[in-house]
Amino acid sequence: MTVITDAFIRAAQNRARALGLTEHPVVVIKHPIASMNRDQVVQLARGSVEQVAQGLLAAAGGAGND
């Protein structure tokens, strides 16, 4: 499970392909984040948390597995 900003989509896809991880779950957020304040980052995280959870569950073997 990897979170990337949209500036790095192409690089991330290429790298995943090179590693044979074409199904690796990725959540894409808007670039840039380094200049955001804490509240903005928290808001961004809340907006992505569901996708991240789904990605982690998928990486663990599929949604619904304990």
Partner: peptide, 10 residues
């Protein structure tokens, strides 16, 4: 290695 601007080179 793929060090090409806009694909891997950032």
């Amino acid at each position: 290695g793929g060090a090409v601007a806009e694909t891997m080179e950032k």
